[in-house]
């Protein structure tokens, strides 16, 4: 029987892979993909707790808000990436060091 911990472990693995992606990637698009993985892991957790907790739909509402915020974040993030590409002709985050003090 599939229980709450199964879903929590799937979300845990996706979160760990997303965090690894954010920490090690030097391509800013790769970092954005890692952030999407982390948000998906959070969504799986929200829906699992909404399913196996008390019978309310608050978790599903929050999941929809997370998806909405992920869309807004992706749009602004990709606009910034394209701006960086026009300025530096690279989206490697190590190429964009001119703000370093």
């Amino acid at each position: 029987m599939i229980g709450l911990t199964h879903y929590l472990f799937v979300a845990l693995l996706v979160f760990a892979l997303g965090l690894f992606c954010v920490l090690t990637r030097r391509n800013s698009l790769g970092i954005l993909m890692g952030i999407e993985l982390i948000l998906n892991a959070a969504n799986i957790n929200y829906l699992a707790f909404a399913r196996f907790g008390p019978a309310t739909y608050d978790g599903q509402i929050v999941a929809i808000f997370v998806i909405m915020l992920a869309a807004a974040e992706a749009v602004v993030g990709l606009a910034i990436v394209l701006g960086i590409y026009q300025t530096f002709h690279s989206i490697d985050v190590e190429a964009t060091e001119t703000l370093r003090g």
């Binding site: 599939i2 799937v10 829906l47 699992a48 909404a50 399913r51 599903q60 999941a63």
Partner: peptide, 11 residues
Amino acid sequence: GLYVFLAADFV
């Protein structure tokens, strides 16, 4: 697909 399993069809 996991969301469908969790009875969250709209999500």
